[in-house]
Simulated scan of single mutants.
Amino acid sequence: MARYYPQMQAFLNYIRTRKAGTGADAHIVDAALGDWIAAETTSGRVTGTWGYHQVADRMAKMAALLGRRADAAEYRSLADDIATAFTDAFYNETLGLYTSQGRQGSEGRHRPHRPSPSTRAWCPTTSARECPAAWSS
């Protein structure tokens, strides 16, 4: 892990500086993973942003394990910011669903309450125990 840490940092920085949006789209990544991550058509903004969060979250964990406290804090903060942006962009309060259109959407995965960034989990079930480990770690 330590050997390839600089390359992993470079990849995260690439996403942050070249793929992630700015302004109203801050932390939103439009990079379709739907072709191989889901059977149904999935918005590239949803899957791209989810993937970006996963990278930032894992980098925070790796930095902590390597004793890089400043990096760990930076990446944890970034992961939390991405989680907030994800929920703000895709969660429809009225429907209680995540949709690719956010507040305007009519389809999505059920979530009975608005998740907080501290959960760092976007699981379509009501119980964290039912979520895949990759979603709720």
Score class of each variant (00 low, 15 high):
45 R>S: 08
82 I>D: 00
73 A>G: 04
110 H>N: 06
80 D>N: 12
127 S>L: 07
136 S>N: 15
34 G>R: 01
60 A>N: 03
49 T>Y: 01
64 A>P: 02
125 T>H: 09
78 L>I: 10
85 A>R: 01
52 Y>Q: 04
24 A>P: 10
3 R>W: 12
103 R>V: 02
24 A>C: 10
8 M>W: 11
41 T>L: 09
23 G>P: 13
54 Q>W: 08
131 C>E: 00
72 A>I: 06
69 R>N: 11
73 A>K: 07
52 Y>I: 03
95 L>H: 03
91 Y>K: 01
73 A>W: 12
6 P>D: 04
109 R>F: 10
62 M>P: 00
128 A>D: 02
112 P>E: 08
100 S>E: 06
135 W>G: 04
48 G>V: 00
104 Q>S: 09
132 P>N: 11
115 P>R: 12
30 D>I: 06
39 A>M: 10
5 Y>Q: 13
124 P>Q: 06
44 G>Y: 05
135 W>K: 12
58 R>D: 09
88 D>I: 07
135 W>T: 14
62 M>T: 04
3 R>T: 12
24 A>I: 10
106 S>I: 03
91 Y>E: 01
76 R>C: 13
105 G>M: 05
23 G>Y: 15
80 D>M: 14
127 S>F: 11
39 A>N: 09
74 E>M: 14
101 Q>T: 05
109 R>S: 09
13 N>Q: 05
13 N>Y: 06
2 A>G: 10
101 Q>I: 02
11 F>C: 08
128 A>M: 09
5 Y>L: 15
34 G>F: 01
54 Q>I: 02
19 K>N: 04
44 G>I: 11
110 H>T: 02
23 G>Q: 10
55 V>H: 03
90 F>C: 01
23 G>C: 15
54 Q>C: 05
44 G>V: 06
74 E>Q: 11
45 R>A: 09
19 K>Q: 06
87 T>Q: 05
55 V>F: 14
9 Q>H: 13
125 T>F: 11
10 A>Y: 07
40 E>F: 10
